[in-house]
Lab assay of single mutants.
Amino acid sequence: RNLTILSLPEDVLFHILKWLSVEDILAVRAVHSQLKDLVDNHASVWACASFQE
């Protein structure tokens, strides 16, 4: 069985995303439609995003 980041529970993905910069979140968003939906549909992803580079 192949395990990917998409195999992780949504709460784990949120925990990972909250540590990323805006640039990295946008890069993750571009990788897969499921990740794009996760980022686009949950404001909590952006609430913790680091807007300082």
Rank of each mutant, 00 (worst) to 15 (best):
residue 16 I to R: 06
residue 31 V to M: 04
residue 45 V to Y: 15
residue 15 H to R: 15
residue 23 E to P: 10
residue 32 H to D: 06
residue 27 A to V: 10
residue 4 T to P: 07
residue 36 K to M: 00
residue 5 I to V: 10
residue 7 S to L: 04
residue 41 N to A: 13
residue 49 A to K: 15
residue 39 V to S: 07
residue 20 L to C: 07
residue 34 Q to L: 08
residue 50 S to W: 07
residue 53 E to A: 11
residue 41 N to I: 07
residue 30 A to C: 14
residue 47 A to E: 08
residue 28 V to A: 02
residue 42 H to G: 07
residue 19 W to Q: 15
residue 29 R to L: 01
residue 31 V to I: 05
residue 33 S to K: 09
residue 9 P to W: 01
residue 15 H to F: 06
residue 25 I to S: 02
residue 33 S to Q: 04
residue 40 D to F: 01
residue 45 V to P: 13
residue 27 A to G: 02
residue 18 K to V: 07
residue 5 I to C: 04
residue 49 A to T: 14
residue 23 E to V: 08
residue 37 D to A: 14
residue 33 S to D: 06
residue 32 H to I: 01
residue 10 E to T: 08
residue 51 F to Y: 10
residue 47 A to W: 08
residue 41 N to T: 12
residue 35 L to E: 03
residue 25 I to D: 01
residue 24 D to Y: 06
residue 6 L to S: 01
residue 25 I to Y: 00
residue 12 V to W: 01
residue 36 K to P: 05
residue 17 L to V: 11
residue 10 E to K: 15
residue 43 A to L: 05
residue 32 H to V: 06
residue 12 V to F: 00
residue 16 I to L: 04
residue 20 L to T: 00
residue 16 I to G: 03
residue 51 F to G: 11
residue 31 V to G: 04
residue 29 R to D: 05
residue 46 W to E: 13
residue 14 F to L: 15
residue 45 V to C: 13
residue 40 D to A: 00
residue 3 L to A: 03
residue 47 A to R: 11
residue 16 I to D: 01
residue 29 R to M: 06
residue 35 L to S: 02
residue 43 A to W: 10
residue 50 S to M: 07
residue 43 A to Q: 12
residue 53 E to G: 13
residue 26 L to E: 06
residue 24 D to E: 08
residue 7 S to V: 04
residue 16 I to P: 04
residue 4 T to H: 13
residue 46 W to P: 08
residue 49 A to P: 15
residue 8 L to G: 00
residue 13 L to I: 04
residue 39 V to Q: 08
residue 9 P to Y: 00
residue 46 W to Y: 07
residue 29 R to V: 06
residue 16 I to K: 00
residue 15 H to A: 09
residue 21 S to P: 13
residue 52 Q to W: 10
residue 35 L to R: 01
residue 18 K to Q: 12
residue 10 E to S: 10
residue 45 V to N: 14
residue 22 V to P: 11
residue 18 K to M: 10
residue 2 N to F: 08
residue 21 S to K: 10
residue 4 T to C: 06
residue 27 A to R: 13
residue 49 A to C: 11
residue 36 K to N: 02
residue 52 Q to A: 14
residue 16 I to E: 02
residue 35 L to V: 02
residue 7 S to N: 12
residue 31 V to E: 00
residue 44 S to W: 06
residue 26 L to K: 13
residue 24 D to G: 05
residue 22 V to E: 09
residue 13 L to M: 11
residue 40 D to L: 00
residue 22 V to C: 09
residue 41 N to V: 06
residue 25 I to Q: 05
residue 36 K to Q: 05
residue 49 A to R: 14
residue 43 A to R: 10
residue 28 V to P: 01
residue 10 E to F: 07
residue 9 P to C: 04
